[in-house]
């Protein structure tokens, strides 16, 4: 009988002590957490894409509430409404970010890029790129295995015709795909951009002509013709300073796109990628 009583009493006592200590501790040691952090975290999409530059939605929420330098419009996946909501929650002014979109700088199917060899390994761009820079004859092509598509947190990409396509309405320009692509052919551009560059090759003209009918030969025509000085060439690849280009306005009538002998530069078409989806 003694043992029974003792065991019940000891367990009861220990349980009681533990619970009392814990309840006292929970009051005494309570940490005031800013309720705004939770509110902001709830307003965010919760996709943890990292497009804002923070580790995830929660860490961005903590940063935007606690750090006065972090703006409420850093979330690329939010619309202006959510940004405004976060602005209200944190008491910060919203200056809406320009809508951007991911863009693939490669049209290897138009250029009839041949295969160097039949690749039969793991269906992943990262793996394929390690083997002789991928099975395509061009070293800089879209490999079309869809690493970016799988990485995309918003399901905004699809594979078609050995290339990856971006659904502009779904793309939030978080940049996950840009960081994933082993050939660095994806680029974030403003939706208001006037011209796109459809090639990312860094090879010399002859080498490009040998493998692709639609590749950039870096002739420099666009660089010379642009009245705004917005087009530049670095390491054989053409870059457009979209801010300068948009600022200059339509009076140049996209002379770069007109003059490009190989139609590498084309007028911005968001719709083209959507139409492709239906096909």
């Amino acid at each position: 009988m003694d043992i029974l009583m003792n065991s019940v009493l000891v367990l009861f006592g220990l349980g009681l002590v533990t619970s009392v200590v814990l309840s006292v501790a929970s009051v005494v040691l309570r940490v005031e957490e800013d309720p705004r952090v939770e509110a902001v975290a709830e307003a965010l999409p919760g996709a943890n894409c990292g497009g804002c530059g923070f580790a995830g939605c929660d860490s961005y929420a903590a940063a935007v509430v606690n750090d006065p330098k972090v703006g409420p419009d850093k979330c690329v996946a939010c619309n202006a409404e959510t940004a405004a909501q976060i602005g209200v929650l944190t008491g910060k002014a919203v200056c809406a970010g320009e809508p951007q979109v991911s863009f693939r700088r490669c049209v290897k199917t138009e250029g009839k890029v041949k295969k160097k060899f039949a690749y039969q390994g793991v269906t992943s761009c990262a793996a394929a790129a390690r083997l002789q820079n991928g099975p395509d004859a061009c070293r800089f092509s879209c490999l079309g295995f869809g690493d970016c598509m799988r990485a995309c947190p918003f399901d905004a990409m699809f594979l078609h015709d050995d290339l990856v396509w971006i659904i502009a309405e779904k793309c939030t320009s978080c940049g996950v795909c840009v960081r994933t692509c082993p050939h660095d052919i994806l680029e974030i551009i403003p939706q208001a951009a006037r011209v796109q560059v459809y090639c990312s090759s860094q090879d010399k003209g002859k080498a490009v002509k040998d493998v692709c009918e639609a590749g950039c030969i870096a002739c420099g025509m666009c660089v010379k013709k642009c009245p705004a000085g917005a087009v530049s060439e670095r390491n054989g690849r053409i870059y457009i300073d979209h801010a300068k280009c948009i600022e200059y306005g339509p009076s140049c009538e996209e002379v770069c796109a007109e003059k490009c002998p190989r139609s590498i530069l084309r007028r911005m078409q968001l719709g083209a990628q959507k139409a492709e989806e239906a096909a």
Binding site: I3, N6, S7, L14, V31
Partner: peptide, 27 residues
């Protein structure tokens, strides 16, 4: 109190409570 047979359950109780407390304390 000769309660050796309660060792497992008592230890679990104590460790769980302790860890909870330490967590709050550290926070």
């Amino acid at each position: 109190y000769d309660l050796g047979y309660l060792q497992t359950i008592v230890f679990i109780l104590v460790i769980a409570g302790l860890v909870q407390f330490v967590e709050m304390f550290l926070k």
